[in-house]
Design a protein around this nucleic acid. Structure first.
Length: 796
RNA sequence: GCCUGAGUGGCGAAAUUGGUAGACGCACAGGACUUAAAAUCCUGCGGGAGUCAUAUCCCGUGCCGGUUCAAGUCCGGCCUUAGGCACCA
């Protein structure tokens, strides 16, 4: 046994003292930027799942350094947000104190894993020196007309008197007090992200994201092609959005969102205004949860006194309001085609509205037919067969008649950028009665959070900052008169939208990052994070960067080249780890009992990196045993040089190098196990044998390998030496086991020289006794010979 | 409902992309060492038939069908399961 506690500490100190992993901006070496998502430093400490992704990318970073790259592998903290704020409220301290504590814990843990982060570039999103630049960049959005204020519905807890994020109000109840959450209209800052919808789709072509990641982005943006069509209501046009203009002859009613402004416009004509107002209230108090989960049953109210004209048929049709139509998508109004849309069908059935089929699908078993077929009851479209052609023809007609136009819609909305919270970056704007909204001048940034330990939510849903008068009241930078600060803060996603840029130049107090650093480090070459962030965080970060690119502040439109996501580490029972289930594995306990190297090796060996994997302490023990055997193999050193099994060594160098580059960490470990198994067969091994083994294992188990390297005097410290190289010609065995098949079934094997000709292979194959049993008396129709592999004899 | 993966021994998983299915590890069983246990080392380990033992044969990668000399891998159709999005018109 070796004393892993002592040697892990020893080498961690060595790396710290030698600044082994410090990245220098500039120089002749080729740069390589590796990034893992920075954690939210919660009170719970790190999860064994963090160890998985940190170790995986650490092994790549360590190998790349040995290969001669200038590697940037930084770490920091994403520390704004609700948990720290709530913890602080409960304990009557400032959130920054809670954050400080948690960062200390987290950093100590990460250091104990031996991850080769460049700590000289560490920062937290909550550092004023950092959020100064987050605020500064927000002002760039503002100054370019990309930030605006608008009324929006937010999730509102009437008891806590605070706005909640969707995550904090899941199930329709407040996470903190359990009250029913309602929708409340509030002025919010928004960023014009929907303007970037098309660029965010197109930009994916300049990335090497996995297809599933790209698809996630594309789905989130939700592009759809269709048409806007005007339906006449008296002299007004009520515009709908539809992706199926070809079904317009089947429209039997219209539905508008409860909040649709046309109701106000026709207030004096609508006879059942009371009923409509009642429904509006009903829709408003319905929670997000009820709208999606419970409200499969359609509800709605027919507007009495106003109706619309189908622009194509000229027929008069009723207008309904219903919450299955959303105000924030399309135009907030739809033309309903109950014969060919499931939701419209449900609604029509419930309220007894006509259903007119316009496409004859020939399938009577389905009540709603959505596929293709012959157009019927459809005027100019009658007899057509193709959906695309029918849509095009109808669109052409609508445009000619001035009734509608082609329109592309996106599900992607503008980014609601306001939070009514204390613990976030203050939005750096000031409101002056005379001058309106005025940006805080650059020289006055950052707008610091006030240094108070007590803050209560306000009565009307404003940020807790609104109660802190001495902070709110300020002077207008424009006219010098009295003014009030914006009291909303930024969302958690803000700080994480550009942190990868700051790592390039983290101490800069003149700019958010220097041009030199941007030009040198360029894109993030390899970005790893959780699946849960591949949609939103990645989209926000790309949007933010594209904007910076468009105003000339960064050199690349796309900030990230490759994005990968790790699978979760589940509890031993195969379920997600959680305190309540009692299946949490604490990495600190494992490091104490088995050492960081064993934990790292096990987590790399556990299975496919991109898939979830259940924790197994027996599996961990197996890897711990492997390291013990590595330690013991030192006893077998002889004083010869060269490789005892040259072919296997070269094969292993190739395998491990490729596997680490391709996230196949589990097979990299198994290749090293195979090499060790081979060494154990010999009476003695050379220093070259041992050195190549510890070198290849070093990225995964860096402490024990450095120690062996030193104790057995194999050469320079591994972290300061070059990665082994292999010779392709030496990876090939001199012989191979030829497989002999008859009709595709293995009937014999023979050892052959690697350079055996096809003829030689065939001759030996035909001569095999067992093979003869299956070929004798049969016609040989074909013989397939694959050099270096097999012979397949086809008989009849 | 839509989109994306995934189904291989008792378990975690491999399989150079069409060429020996189950590498490597865990668990288990037998043996060595030990007074004993732990640790360590050796051997075996998909199922079945067969043999004293070998040899050898049959079946086997969720299910059904297809392409091919050859299919875990490719094609068509199902089933199960995980994740993401969702009255998005």
């Amino acid at each position: 046994m070796y004393d892993f506690k002592k040697i892990e500490k020893k080498w961690q100190n060595y790396w710290k003292e030698h600044e082994t992993f410090k990245a220098i901006t500039g120089g002749d070496k080729e740069k390589y930027y590796i990034l893992v998502e920075f954690p939210y430093p919660s009170g719970a400490g790190l999860h064994v799942g963090h160890v998985r992704s940190y170790t995986a990318l650490d092994s790549v970073a360590r190998m790349k350094r040995m290969k001669g790259y200038n590697v940037l592998f930084p770490m920091g903290w994403d520390a704004f947000g609700a948990p720290a704020e709530q913890y602080a409220i409960k304990n009557h301290i400032h959130p920054k104190e809670a954050v400080k504590e948690n960062i200390k814990t987290f950093k100590g843990q990460i250091e104990s894993f031996g991850t080769s982060f460049d700590w000289s570039r560490e920062f937290s999103t909550t550092d004023p020196e950092y959020y100064k630049w987050t605020q500064w960049q927000f002002l760039q959005f503002y100054k370019h007309g990309m930030a605006y204020k608008a009324k929006k519905n937010i999730n509102w807890c009437p008891k806590c008197k605070t706005g909640l994020s969707n995550e904090d109000s899941s199930g329709g109840v407040c996470e903190r007090c359990g009250s029913k959450v309602v929708q409340k209209e509030k002025e919010q800052w928004l960023l014009r992200m929907s303007d970037y919808a098309e660029d965010l789709i197109n930009g994916l072509e300049d990335t090497k994201f996995a297809d599933r990641v790209k698809l996630g982005q594309i789905n989130w943006i939700g592009k759809s092609r269709g048409a806007e069509v005007d339906f006449k209501v008296d002299d007004e046009a009520l515009t709908v959005y539809t992706t199926r203009p070809d079904t317009i002859y089947g429209v039997t009613f219209m539905v508008i969102a409860p909040e649709h402004p046309i109701i106000e416009k026709f207030a004096d004509k609508i006879k059942n205004m009371d009923e409509i107002k009642e429904y509006r209230e009903f829709a408003k108090t319905k929670t997000e949860f009820e709208r999606t989960e419970l409200a499969k049953d359609k509800t709605g109210v027919k507007i009495d006194g106003v109706s619309a004209i189908n622009p194509v048929t000229g027929k008069e049709i009723p207008i309904w309001i219903s919450d299955y139509v959303m105000m924030n998508y399309g135009t907030g109004a739809i033309m309903a085609v109950p014969a060919h849309d499931g939701r419209d069908y449900d609604f029509a059935k419930k309220f007894g509205i006509d259903i007119i089929p316009v496409i004859d699908g020939g399938d009577v078993s389905k009540e709603v037919y959505t596929g293709e077929g012959i157009y019927i009851n459809s005027g100019i479209l009658n007899g057509m067969l193709n959906k695309e052609e029918a849509c095009a023809k109808m669109l052409e007609y609508l445009e000619e008649e001035g009734l509608g136009k082609a329109k592309v819609n996106y599900r992607l909305q503008d980014w609601i950028f306001s939070r009514q919270r204390f613990w976030g970056e203050p939005i750096p704007l000031v409101y002056c009665e005379k001058c309106g909204w005025v940006p805080v001048p650059d020289e006055d940034l950052p707008v610091l959070l006030p240094d108070v330990a007590e803050y209560e939510p306000t009565e009307d849903g404003e940020s807790p900052l609104a109660n802190i008068e001495e902070w709110v009241n300020t002077i207008c930078p424009c006219c010098g008169g009295p003014a009030r600060r914006e009291t909303d803060t930024m969302p958690n996603w803000a700080g994480s939208s550009w942190y990868f840029l700051r790592y390039m130049d983290p101490k800069n107090d003149k700019e958010f990052v220097s041009k030199e650093a941007l030009d040198y480090w360029g894109k993030v070459d390899w970005y790893n994070g959780g699946m849960e962030h591949t949609a939103r965080h990645l989209l926000y970060a790309r949007f933010w960067n594209q904007f910076l690119y468009n105003i000339g502040l960064v050199p690349n439109k796309e900030p990230i080249d490759v994005r990968v996501s790790h699978g979760m580490i589940l509890g031993p029972n195969g379920e997600k780890m959680s305190k309540s289930k009692g299946n949490v594995i604490n990495p600190d306990d494992i490091v104490k009992e088995y050492g960081a190297d064993a934990l790292r090796t096990y987590e790399m060996f556990i299975g496919d990196y991109e898939k979830d994997a259940a924790w197994s302490t027996n599996g961990l023990k197996g890897c711990s045993k492997f390291l013990d055997r590595i330690w013991k193999i030192q006893d077998k050193l002889n004083d010869k040089s060269g490789y005892t099994n040259e072919t296997l060594v070269h094969q292993t160098i190739k395998k491990v190098s490729n596997d680490l580059e391709n996230m196949k960490y589990n097979t990299a470990v198994s290749a090293l196990m195979i090499l060790l198994n081979d060494y154990e067969k010999y009476d003695s091994i050379t220093k070259d044998d041992l050195r190549v083994l510890v070198h290849l294992l070093n990225p995964i188990a860096p402490h024990i390998t450095e120690e062996i390297n030193e104790v057995s005097s194999l050469g320079d410290a591994l972290c300061e030496s070059a990665w082994p190289i292999y010779d392709e010609s030496k990876t090939v065995d001199s012989t191979f086991e030829m497989v002999i098949q008859v009709n595709g079934k293995v009937r014999g094997k023979a050892v052959m020289a690697a350079d055996a000709t096809k003829e030689q292979m065939e001759t030996i194959a035909m001569d095999n006794e067992n093979v003869k049993k299956f070929t004798s008396g049969k016609n040989i129709v074909n013989v397939v010979v694959i050099p270096n592999k097999l012979v397949n004899i086809v008989v009849k």
